[in-house]
Design a protein around this nucleic acid. Structure first.
Lengths: 201, 201
DNA sequence: TCAAAAAAATGAGCATGTTCATGATTGAAC
DNA sequence: GTTCAATCATGAACATGCTCATTTTTTTGA
């Protein structure tokens, strides 16, 4: 196997990644030029484009694995608590991640949800995350905390939708962190209880 | 009141708007240059930027009022049917609107949900729409179709979240139109019923 | 060890969004 | 009608994402 080639590639990518990450933090996404990234990484501009299709792609590649870590962290530290609190914990890990840099989070979420068509949409990531939430809900259903016949995957997607709306509200500055948490908790509770009339037997 | 000034302004805006709209339809958003817009509108490039902060802003200004029309249309033609069908009808009007040009819809939704910070985020539009959906749910609650103590605004936001997820799934090509409709219907039903266990008295 | 092929790197150059110094148009005051 | 200030319009010039013909590096095979 080609070792020198491989090592060179990995080294270049590491440098580009590091340069981009630091520059995004220092000057924001729009404020960072691809030239600046190339300079700091000590490569040519063209080289950057051998490792990422576009500037947006670069951002995604850099942060997606951090997000994966945040997900794992969330599921690894689940509290022994009612299902709503467990969900809030998981989604709270996302919030904590995005909190590090709100402006960047904005771009990141935008690209992840409706990014360029010919970019590698991280379908895998979404699917696997949804399955994990579904598993959480499934457990809860088994314990009798939720309906036994719960369509877990669908329910998981619903909770994700509620998370996404509160995330957008937060990133748009409509609510602060407390408001965001209150909003998500309330909407999750409403999803649990349902909108329908209490049926009397 | 300044009549000539005003007329000139309106005429310029009309021409710019028309030019941009037709070019976006012909060549897509990314494929349309601001120079092309200016040329077709028979104004200078700089003039375009007197009427819209950015190219994205131009897109938003052009289509937001069409969206308003779609909303009004939706509420004006509500079917006399169960609440889920009424909601599907309203959100279906959005789908019908976006259906005209999927690629453009993608950009439009992206800008509307997480557009540039210093662009006029159409908070008014969202708020008034949410209130109208809330009113719909409120009526339904009064008729006994939904819980009497329903927090209508929150419930409206929840249904909007579910709509948004199905919209994104559709725009990303994860589901086709039928799948999108099925998805929204199922998730709305689940929101109505709730996730909690059927309580037995 | 050395050609030659394959792969990777490069940065000048292009395309295009946006700005801004300059000039044209309009409305008001007299 | 003239003047003048306020507003509006303009496109050359700039900034920057991205490409691609050329050059450099690495691997292969004999």
């Amino acid at each position: 196997m080609s070792t020198l080639r491989e090592r060179n590639r990995q080294d270049k990518w590491r440098r580009i990644r590091k340069a981009a990450e630091s520059l995004f933090a220092e000057r924001g996404f729009a404020g960072t030029t691809t030239r600046a990234i190339a300079d700091r990484a000590e490569v040519g501009v063209g080289t950057v484009y051998l490792y990422a299709k576009t500037k947006e792609d670069l951002l995604l590649r850099i942060f997606v694995e951090s997000i994966e870590a945040a997900i794992d962290e969330g599921f690894a530290t689940l509290p022994d608590a009612p299902i709503v609190d467990r969900l809030l914990h998981v989604y709270g890990c996302f919030f904590a991640f995005y909190r590090r840099d709100l402006a960047l989070a904005r771009v990141l979420v935008r690209e992840m949800t409706l990014g360029d068509v010919d970019l590698p949409a991280n379908v895998e990531l979404s699917m696997s995350f949804n399955r994990r939430v579904a598993a959480l809900l499934g457990e809860s259903a088994l314990r009798g905390e939720l309906r036994r016949d719960l369509p877990a995957e669908l329910a998981a997607t619903n909770t994700f939708a509620l998370y996404l709306i509160s995330l957008v509200a937060w990133l748009n500055g409509f609510v602060d962190e407390a408001g965001r948490d209150a909003m998500l908790r309330a909407s999750l509770n409403l999803q649990l209880e349902g909108l329908g009339p209490r049926e009397e037997s």
